[in-house]
Nucleic acid binder design. Structure first.
Lengths: 211, 211
DNA sequence: ACGCACCTCTCCCTATAGAGAGAGGAATGA
DNA sequence: TCATTCCTCTCTCTATAGGGAGAGGTGCGT
């Protein structure tokens, strides 16, 4: 083996699909300048392995069992504010992108990008350079111009998305029906929707809710 | 243990994520009894390559550009009613499973299964034995007890899911509002939902609509 | 102490949704 | 031919949704 002066980029892969981990690991380990030091199949494992192995880069899927990618980003950034995290996922909703990037993820790419781009992204992030494709970045910028929902509104939105009536929502949240309507109304306004069903469609597209 | 004079199982992989194809291809090619003879990144390519290479097994993702997995199943079964297709996807809705299996797919597995199970499934399907994990099979059976939506109802459902009003739906489908309401009503009955928003939630869970 | 955002509640009003009970025409297959 | 399913349309009636315009309480940061 040729003695490299520089250390290899140490990578952790976190994705709940074994096949994806295999594919990525093979790609990464084939590169002379990087290596996979651990793999995680859920969010808790990702956090534990991050602390244990202190990798240069962690590649994260968003939807994982136990703890989703965003929660992992938040926790890891608490542990190490200089962590270098690359989100690699199929979800391209404004909200997911915006939340991950604003919580400190260094890059965000979609799973359908060509092999080479994934490796470029890992290298960029390892050097603390942000890597986000232009379409993804555009969505994050769009999202910044949109009003955020409050926590309570998100509570209500989730129930609306389940098809609950205002009366039902009120009961579940221990508020009056009128208050539930008030929340629904501001949700409609913020999402620029005419009906609750349209609000659900918009919210889903933006990644505000997971059905 | 009979001498292995048999030809290898010839496999085509169809998935729009290069990483997944890589992972699968590596796994398959590592086996002594199977080999990948082609890879497709979209539905049209999958069909074209199937005809050209006549593989023993085609592994299919459901959501692909140009033509989705179900459409590929339908087309390939027309071309060759004895085709051996294995669906490998993240979507576990009743409808997807039911439709694929009833159109002749031999197996249906989820992407989060362990490596070994994927290989077992490919071997089973290559021998024309059905392979479907118990939880997936259970959903297909559940689905059989549920009423199907008509084509027109699916048209309406899609617009309902976009948040359109009955009046709007009527305009777009060139029918009266009353007729739109009739369709919505039977959708609600068939999906066992109280409101249109709940119907959308149920339809999404079952895989009747893609948001 | 003040503004500010949020959550809560109220009253009134109109538009829409959804239940119920039909009925006619077209296509399909037994 | 007959039975069935689907699509279309009509009617009435009630419940719910959603717009408008407030107002009182909290907690927060300045």
């Amino acid at each position: 083996m040729s003695a490299e002066i520089h250390k290899k980029i140490r990578v952790i892969l976190a994705d709940d699909h074994p096949v994806v981990r295999d594919g990525l690991a093979a790609m990464v380990n084939q590169q002379p300048d990087m290596e996979v030091v651990a793999e995680a199949g859920d969010g808790d494992a990702a956090i534990a392995l991050y602390e244990e192995r202190q990798p240069d880069v962690m590649v994260l899927d968003l939807r994982m069992p136990k703890r989703d990618g965003l929660a992992v980003v938040q926790r890891v950034m608490e542990i190490n504010p200089k962590a270098r995290l690359l989100i690699m996922t199929t979800y391209d909703g404004d909200e997911d992108i915006f939340q991950c990037l604003s919580h400190g993820a260094k890059g965000y790419i979609l799973k359908d990008v060509p092999r080479q781009e994934i490796l470029s992204a890992i290298r960029a992030v390892s050097e603390d350079r942000p890597y986000t494709s232009s379409t993804v970045a555009a969505k994050a910028l769009q999202r910044m111009a949109k009003p955020s929902l409050t926590e309570r509104e998100l509570d209500v939105l989730e129930l609306v998305a389940q098809g609950r009536s205002n009366k039902d929502i009120a009961r579940r949240l221990s508020i009056t029906e009128g208050t539930a309507k008030t929340h629904v109304k501001s949700i409609l306004t913020k999402l620029d929707a005419i009906s609750r069903t349209e609000a659900v469609a918009v919210a889903h597209k933006r990644g505000l809710i997971r059905l």
